[in-house]
C-alpha cells in the first residue's frame, strides 16, 4: 500500500488548500498579538497642545475605540463616516491617533469631515503605532472597560465589515 502514499499525501494537501480557500480569510491580514493584552504604555502630545497617555484608553467606564488615521490616507477618508456614526452612539469613548501626520493637516482634515474623537493624539514619528503593531493607517482597536485590547480592525471600516466584524465585538462588550 506504500505505493499510494504519494496520492494520499497529495489529497491531504489539496484538502488543506480547499479549506483555506473556502474559509473567509484575507492572507494579507495578520492577527494582532495584542488581542487580550493591556494597552501598551505611552505618552503623546494632543492636537490641542496638551499631553495624554495610555490613561485616556483605560478605565473610562465605557469601552474605547482607538483609530489610527492620517489626513494623507485615502481609505481613512472613506471610513470617516463610520467613525462619525460610532461617535453618535454615545456609548463609546472615541480616541484618534494621527499617524505620521502634520498637526495643521490633521486639523484641516477634521474641520472638513467633522471630528468624531473626544481627544486626538499626535504620533508624528509613528513610534506608538509600532507599539500597537500598526502596519498602516487606518487601523482601529477596541478596548474594553478594563483597558484590555479586544479587537483589531485592519484597513478601513466600510461596507459589510461593520455588521460582520465590529458589531459582534461590540455586542461581546455588552453594547447593542
Amino acid at each position: 500500500m506504500t505505493r499510494f502514499v504519494p496520492a494520499v499525501a497529495f489529497v491531504a494537501m489539496v484538502a488543506l488548500f480547499a479549506v483555506m480557500m473556502l474559509s473567509d480569510r484575507n492572507p494579507k491580514e495578520i492577527n494582532s498579538v495584542l488581542i487580550g493584552r493591556t494597552v501598551p504604555d505611552f505618552a503623546l502630545p494632543t492636537l490641542d497642545g496638551g499631553t495624554a497617555g495610555d490613561a485616556v484608553l483605560k478605565a473610562r467606564g465605557k469601552p474605547v475605540l482607538v483609530n489610527f488615521f492620517a489626513s494623507w490616507c485615502v481609505p481613512c477618508r472613506a471610513e470617516h463616516q463610520t467613525l462619525m456614526d460610532l461617535a453618535a452612539r454615545g456609548d463609546l469613548v472615541m480616541v484618534g491617533i494621527a499617524y505620521k501626520d502634520r498637526p495643521g493637516d490633521t486639523r484641516a482634515f477634521l474641520d472638513e469631515l467633522g471630528n468624531p474623537f473626544e481627544v486626538v493624539l499626535r504620533d508624528e514619528t509613528g513610534d506608538v503605532a509600532i507599539e500597537f503593531g500598526v502596519s498602516g493607517a487606518p487601523e482601529t482597536f477596541l478596548i474594553d472597560r478594563d483597558g484590555t485590547i479586544r479587537y483589531r480592525h485592519w484597513g478601513p471600516m466600510v461596507g459589510d465589515t461593520i455588521a460582520q466584524r465590529l458589531a459582534p465585538e461590540l455586542e461581546a462588550l455588552g453594547l447593542p
Binding site: R3, F4, A7, V14, M21, L22
Partner: peptide
C-alpha cells in the same frame, strides 16, 4: 479570485491526484 483558485485546485486534484492514483495501481 476565489473562483479561479478553486478551478485550478480542482484541475490540480484531477490531474495530479489521478496520475498518483494510477501510479499507486501500477507501480507494483
Amino acid at each position: 479570485d476565489p473562483e479561479r483558485g478553486l478551478f485550478i485546485l480542482a484541475f490540480l486534484a484531477l490531474v495530479i491526484g489521478g496520475s498518483l492514483i494510477l501510479y499507486g495501481m501500477r507501480a507494483e
